[in-house]
Design a protein around this nucleic acid. Structure first.
Lengths: 190, 190
DNA sequence: ACCTGAACACCGTTCAAGT
DNA sequence: ACCTGAACACCGTTCAAGT
């Protein structure tokens, strides 16, 4: 019944995917691991920190099928690919987007996507301050959109909200990302 | 000790502003009104619905000081003003942005800003599908940015996160909104 | 290093009953 | 129409103690 920190994170991710964020409680996770909930506090100082570790695990595992990104692409294409990869990684797990968004909001993890986006933009010649603002704008959109998509899809299966079946989330997502990138291109070209 | 629905919403908004979203519990609100928590379920079917009513109240009351918006401005200016007004309305209350964002996420209210943005864009000649995508992109950014700002400001006063005092949230916000609007303009001009 | 067991201080929600 | 009182089924976290 003895576990390491990484075992706990892996099990938490499994509980998340099988039952959703609302059911990922310290008591439930303890039961799932065959230990008392209080034992979790040997591995993590709080539930927030545990969730941040789950968010980082989601980002490290990445999307189920990763699309190739050519390193000789222009920065717009690479930034677009980074956004779609982040979305796919979040959508691969139940409530994945909300977990990543929450970790980011508390400043406890999930820093990799921001760093990657800023890196792509700065390497492409975008001013570092503007690159930061653009990266944050893109991340607000990506995580907000993906969270909405997962919320609405679940609500449909429970029957709480009327979810329009005709909504093409992927096309709508692409439009939003391209809007921000087009604005950035316009600004970079003076 | 008898209250109407609007009394309950007003008191909830006061508890929110004085103590934050974490302390806005059904039990706390009941105590504040001098009634049992169960009595709140006479006015609202759930806490989620109560919070949606609080979100709508925040939007109706608007920002503390409203900046003039000339109706003969071009659509870019009117959309920009709508975004800044929404941000100011949220920032006027403790955790206001999170309450509005949550209500929107659950589809239970806070529809006015979306309707207003779509209206401004469509009146300006933007295709209705594109106007919808752009409005949702702007709202993800506005509410995400404002939520972050309020979270980081509070974290600073509690000491949980290192909040950079040099961060100019208002300038960063304006940059993000203008990025999306510039992308939309580029797209509309073919 | 990792865990138990018990406790503390809470939650949202339901429901029969009262006025 | 609006509220009480009691209960149900939970939470996150702390802490002394065990191996």
């Amino acid at each position: 019944m003895r576990h390491r920190r990484e075992d706990v994170v892996a099990r938490a991710l499994q509980v998340l995917d099988d039952h959703g964020l609302a059911d990922l409680t310290m008591r439930r996770l303890g039961t799932e691991l065959g230990i008392q909930p209080s034992a979790l506090y040997h591995h993590f100082p709080s539930k927030q920190v545990l969730l941040a570790a789950v968010a980082d695990e989601i980002l490290e595992r990445g999307p189920r099928s990763s699309s190739e990104v050519l390193s000789d692409e222009p920065w717009e294409g690479r930034a677009r690919a980074a956004c779609h990869t982040l979305r796919d990684a979040c959508l691969a797990w139940t409530d994945g987007a909300e977990v990543v968004a929450t970790a980011r909001a508390f400043g406890l993890g999930a820093r990799a996507p921001y760093d990657e986006l800023v890196g792509v933009l700065v390497t492409g010649g975008v001013d570092v301050d503007l690159a930061g603002s653009a990266a944050r704008t893109l991340l607000h959109f990506v995580l907000g959109h993906a969270t909405d998509e997962q919320t609405h899809r679940q609500a449909g299966s429970v029957g709480a909200i009327d979810t329009d079946p005709a909504t093409d989330f992927t096309a709508d997502f692409a439009t939003g990302v391209d809007l921000v990138l087009a604005g950035l291109q316009a600004r970079v070209r003076r």
